[in-house]
């Protein structure tokens, strides 16, 4: 186990050297991720671990990517996507232009899922998907749109459960154990790094997806980030969170109305 004081030292290094501020992250999870990485990379001592983080820029990338958890899936929680498909997107079709923000998009599986939904709702041509994350390496993977073939069976099941009726494999071409998604889907995506802790609002959106990111933040930071989303949502825009996340204890709550039982809220004031 790592001592609390050592966690503080590492977090302080990250802030001073690179400007990453993890001080308001959920501590238990952060600590576990740090210990896990320490074991995985077999550092004999804390001093060696710390030295590597401070002196090796490539290792820093790995460190940040590993402690922030970039695990994701396509059509994760199919019923959530079904709700988007049947309840939410139909209210946007009349708009001349639709802007979606995926905050904390990780390696992009969520963004491709959304592009498929928009395409099937016949509104992809007038949509733009802004996909942002803290981790440049994850974004690089997202940009390429190449995912492991082995995951497709699960994703295809998720897709069907979400109400998809096409052959899921018509969206990609498989080669050497990997699949590449149709470039037509990616044409409407814009990838960029954006740090929810320190960066500002950069546009006005009709739908903001931020799923399984807030769980890594403590309550004060969650509240700040939710205010950032509030500033970035247009009138009657939607905010979609992960299945176990909520806006209920935040200051923005009075201006939002939950849509059914999914974690989707609409801005009503």
């Amino acid at each position: 186990m790592i001592a609390e004081a050592e966690v503080d030292i590492l977090l302080n290094d990250l802030y001073e050297l690179y400007g990453y501020d993890f001080s308001n992250y959920s501590r238990a999870s952060l600590k576990r991720r740090i210990v896990r990485l320490w074991m995985l990379d077999k550092f004999p001592s804390f001093a060696e671990f710390r030295y590597r983080v401070k002196s090796d820029a490539d290792y820093l990338k790995r460190f940040v990517e590993e402690i922030t958890v970039t695990v994701t899936e396509m059509f994760r929680d199919p019923l959530f996507y079904r709700c988007l498909r049947t309840e939410i997107l139909p209210t946007l079709t009349a708009k001349p232009f639709i802007r979606v923000w995926h905050a904390g998009c990780a390696t992009g599986e969520e963004v491709y899922s959304m592009a498929i939904l928009l395409k099937e709702s016949q509104i992809l041509h007038k949509s733009l998907l802004y996909a942002t994350d803290l981790n440049p390496t994850a974004l690089e993977k997202a940009r390429r749109g190449i995912f492991p073939l082995g995951s497709m069976k699960q994703y295809s099941e998720n897709y069907i459960e979400s109400g998809g009726i096409l052959d899921f494999s018509s969206y990609y071409t498989a080669q050497y154990g990997q699949v590449k998604f149709d470039e037509k889907l990616a044409e409407k995506m814009i990838f960029s790094t954006h740090n929810l802790v320190s960066d500002r609002s950069f546009n006005e959106f009709d739908l903001i997806m931020c799923r399984n990111v807030l769980i890594y933040f403590d309550k004060p930071l969650q509240d700040r980030v939710l205010s950032l989303f509030d500033e970035s949502l247009g009138q009657l825009g939607y905010l979609a969170l992960g299945t176990k996340e909520t806006i209920n204890f935040s200051t923005i709550k009075p201006n939002y109305k939950q849509q059914g039982k999914e974690k989707i809220w609409r801005k009503i004031a």
Binding site: S26, A28, V69, V71, I215, Y216
Partner: peptide, 21 residues
Amino acid sequence: APADYHLLIEADKTFSLDYSE
């Protein structure tokens, strides 16, 4: 513990969820 998340406990006696490997 909810399905498909790891469940952790913070020093301030609140729960945190984690969607890692």
